[in-house]
Amino acid sequence: MDMTDRGLLALVRHEGRVPGPYLDVKNIWTFGIGHTAAAGPPDPARMSRGMTADLDAGVREAFRLFRANIVAYEAEVLRAVNVPVEPHEFDALVSFHYNTGGIANASLIRLSKRREQWRRQCVIQ
């Protein structure tokens, strides 16, 4: 399952687009569309400071990283979620995970797994 175009656009709008490294509101080095070191290389803390002279190249790199990050986050959400979800629900789960990195430990996931176990027990009996 992939995020919908609407979900991707909402996430981009929420994150913003900055073609250079910056400190976010939690004092974490970030680049592009919410890319942090937690998502993998490159580490924004080690990037050259300031805006690139070629802003188009900076924007292209921001979107390239975003696309790569989203693929990884979608896969992690799919591994964590063991119940069917609607496309808009999947969008919300990926957005949550993109911002927190905590999908595997989220209460929602634990509760959905308990519900699925309960449902299976009812079907077996």
Results as ranks from 00 to 15, higher is better:
91 D>F: 08
18 V>Y: 01
103 I>E: 12
64 R>N: 08
116 E>K: 07
54 D>V: 12
7 G>Q: 00
52 T>A: 15
54 D>Q: 13
16 G>F: 07
78 L>M: 10
56 D>K: 15
8 L>H: 03
3 M>T: 06
45 A>H: 01
66 F>T: 06
45 A>S: 11
110 R>Y: 06
96 F>D: 06
20 G>D: 06
104 A>D: 03
29 W>V: 03
115 R>E: 12
51 M>P: 06
98 Y>C: 03
22 Y>N: 10
61 E>M: 14
54 D>C: 12
75 A>T: 05
9 L>Y: 00
107 S>H: 05
22 Y>E: 10
66 F>H: 14
87 P>Y: 02
47 M>N: 06
103 I>N: 12
70 I>S: 02
20 G>P: 00
103 I>A: 07
11 L>A: 05
110 R>E: 07
2 D>C: 05
24 D>S: 11
44 P>Y: 04
66 F>W: 10
36 T>Y: 04
56 D>M: 11
82 N>K: 09
90 F>C: 01
78 L>W: 00
49 R>E: 07
94 V>E: 00
56 D>L: 13
57 A>F: 05
117 Q>L: 15
56 D>H: 14
8 L>D: 04
103 I>Q: 12
63 F>G: 06
88 H>A: 15
35 H>K: 07
8 L>Q: 11
99 N>V: 13
76 E>A: 15
66 F>Y: 10
90 F>E: 03
33 I>E: 09
69 N>M: 15
73 Y>V: 13
65 L>C: 13
110 R>F: 10
120 R>M: 01
36 T>D: 08
111 L>Q: 15
